[in-house]
Design a binder for these strands. Sequence first.
DNA 1: TTGAAAGCGTTACCAG
DNA 2: CTGGTAACGCTTTCAA
Lengths: 345, 345
Amino acid sequence: MKPVRMKDIARDLGVSVITVSKALRDHSDISAATRARVLKRVKELNYKPNYAARALVTGRSNMIGLVVPDLVHSFYSEIGNGLGGVLRKAGYNLVISSSEEDQEIESQVIDQLIARRVDCLVIASSNWTAAALKRVIEANIPFVLIDRRVPGIDANFVGGDDELIGVIATEHLIEVGCKTIAHIGGAKITPARGRLEGYKKTLAKHRLALGPEYIVTHDMLDESAHEVGYESAMSLLKLNPRPDGIFCFSDPLAIGTMRAILDAGLRVPEDVALVGCGNLHYDVFLRIPLTSVDQQSFAIGERAATLAIAMIDAESQSGPKPKPRSILLQPKLIIRESTYRKIHA
Amino acid sequence: MKPVRMKDIARDLGVSVITVSKALRDHSDISAATRARVLKRVKELNYKPNYAARALVTGRSNMIGLVVPDLVHSFYSEIGNGLGGVLRKAGYNLVISSSEEDQEIESQVIDQLIARRVDCLVIASSNWTAAALKRVIEANIPFVLIDRRVPGIDANFVGGDDELIGVIATEHLIEVGCKTIAHIGGAKITPARGRLEGYKKTLAKHRLALGPEYIVTHDMLDESAHEVGYESAMSLLKLNPRPDGIFCFSDPLAIGTMRAILDAGLRVPEDVALVGCGNLHYDVFLRIPLTSVDQQSFAIGERAATLAIAMIDAESQSGPKPKPRSILLQPKLIIRESTYRKIHA
DNA sequence: TTGAAAGCGTTACCAG
DNA sequence: CTGGTAACGCTTTCAA
């Protein structure tokens, strides 16, 4: 039982395949009567156009590829949701691949998506070798980077204002009276560097700068962030003077940190105040509700989708390519109990 | 700058396109020397096969469609992860669509995926009208249902043993001394019914059956589960006698319930013990760590992928279709503080 | 307003 | 072992 083809409809109606094709795509030069007949038969036979055939001739697949390091981390699934909604309404399908934060796998899935001739790639890459990106550029496929930039590549980007995130978090800790503020972060990825930068600048501005032992960085899977946070915090708490505030790169890190503080017999926020980043939806239900910097992940997805569609459209017009744009979403501090402290000032 | 085609490679090497095609697919009747030359040139030119063209002629797209009600809920993203890993290794791509728990959207995305000629559909449907499924069957596309069954449809299924989940959760509450056990659940979806059934049977077995006012059910988006749990729990807590144990259909529901109990000035687990379902990774970090029944969501994804691939292979062999299988994963109780109680027995 | 011819990049079938 | 021919289902271009 083969799928219905345009040919079948054309035969039934005594018209040509071309007529059917045009009627289906609302081409102007088709009589209303013919179109109606076609549409009627289409419905009767439950005809579905074959996208592969269409893609072959038009050169457009109507698919967008999304590559993320980790599907399970809600930050990325929210991005996926934002993307998916916009794309669905625009008639695109979303092909999602997880790189599992592994460079090898990332290359492999990107190659796959190139072979699929996706119309645009949306990529949150971690260990980014320019090599993988180069293949995308060579394949002449437009792409949008999200969340993480690639040093040396001037590409379209949608993400958070990471330095500002670092500033906001650190300023807040200072405001609630912290004097010895530590940071637990990522290592190589650009958001980690931006947030660290914001943290450092803010400390410097307030003349609170500390030795490097108050900064712990690791590259990690989000899955293991809890444990990394726990271990990192444990070592930070042994320092003298002990930190009275900790700014964590992500909420999962902050959750591990919180557990370490409590296990060490200290109180949050009285002894150590804590700020995370991501504003995950369960933050409010934690042992101690977590103050966090919201990154607007859903909006990142939406904006990336809009940008992707714009790039595809620009591609089909043979005009000059628009310059790459950087869209930075404004971070917003969400204050919860983990930083409710008397202001010592 | 057009993508490289087999034709280009054939021309460069002075062989035919067919030879290239065969060499690329490890066809037996090609000399090692020729294959080596082809592969070398393929690498040099960074050739990527055009999957659309291949799909057109083979009738197989090497894509699998996944339809879930909500990408953000970690239950589904874990399923997606399990699926994605297995499929990637088998050379398939995953096209993911969220139905946003909306029947209209669900139909629409399923139609899209049919038009894409995905080789198999993996579907977790909520408001399932047989109609949507019928189109899949008519299109002759194999499919696997996950998590939620469709009444009246004898299809391949991978999910949890929901009645057993209800039994395990309720037995546990009884064991820790609860006498008045309420249930907050879903309404129409089959897992909700199964868990409710297990709950009821267990109460009956222990002669603890209660009036229907101790059971609250709602169909809901996972996004709103927190609030639904909160409201439902608030009303349950006004009953006389007051419940001393609550079994919630999902962890998000349980989190809302926990908040309601605490807001009502009661203690967990001393006044009300609480069991959820899903064993989400943050359960352990909640205000009161949550006892939960693990559903093995990652495994559900893996098994669904394996099944999907098996169905596709079976399809290509013209043998008789294997009978639909039901794969039920064993639930496992994870005990945490929300049910640590003295045993009153 | 309609249609005929050509072709998109690939693979299947069958000859050489 | 190699290759020609046809076909997959659709759209584009141009002519009627």
